[in-house]
Design a binder for these strands. Structure first.
Lengths: 122, 122
DNA sequence: GAAGCAGGTCACTAGGTCAC
DNA sequence: GTGACCTAGTGACCTGCTTC
């Protein structure tokens, strides 16, 4: 667990308030510049709800599987990461369903694809 | 899903004893901030039979299709939600049939209309 | 010790099933 | 067609490990 961290610019934190900062945890590697945000840097108190999930835009409070993600996408990805995407069926057959948090019945296939696309890594 | 959490006023729980509490689950969407109801808040033990169906006044034990509804109205709505109401015929032609649980043959059209009116959402 | 995250747990509900 | 029961998916919260 833990450390996941890799930070790529792609991992700039997407704040709910539309700011962007890079807060990747320590991890790894990429340019260290991006990773700067240390825990303390990003203000000692983790801006708990200033982050937004890269998958569904819901409030997030940190990294899960190497990406800023919310509790529900984290759980979703945990359950489905190992499942072959092909086994899932898109609700609309066009594979571009909206999977944002405010959508009632989110397409599992599209949600899983978006997780992968956004860099969630199990 | 979840714990339910969010509470919208329309979703205040209608208790049999005439109390109201809000226990909405997350449903959807609203801002996640609202979702705070914790498990314990909504009383740890969901007051299983204190709820009454908004459609037919039968005992309910939680939300179905975004409204406090009983098992039978849930099944009814699931089967008929997508059916055009116009295709149904009111048993009395006045479209105000009593659809409470103690009525023997409930008018399908009026029952479906009441479901919609009470906010059941598929 | 504090903080962050992976994984576990469990209340809750949508949808399926089936006797009637 | 109805309604009771069952099952699987969801998401909030919890637990434990790791790092600082």
């Amino acid at each position: 667990m833990s450390d996941k961290k890799k930070t790529t610019s792609k991992n700039d934190v997407h704040l709910a308030n539309n700011q962007r900062i890079s807060t990747k945890r320590s991890l790894s590697t990429q340019s260290s510049t991006e990773l700067n945000k240390t825990r303390s840097e990003s203000t000692s108190k983790r801006q708990k709800s200033l982050l937004i999930c890269v998958v569904c835009d819901a409030d997030a409070h940190g990294y899960n599987f190497d990406a800023i993600s919310c509790e529900s996408c984290k759980a979703f990805f945990r359950r489905n990461a190992l499942r072959p995407v092909q086994k899932l069926k898109c609700r609309r057959n066009d594979a571009h369903c909206d999977v944002r948090f405010n959508i009632k019945k989110r397409c599992r296939k599209c949600r899983l694809e978006k997780c992968t696309e956004k860099g969630l890594d199990h």
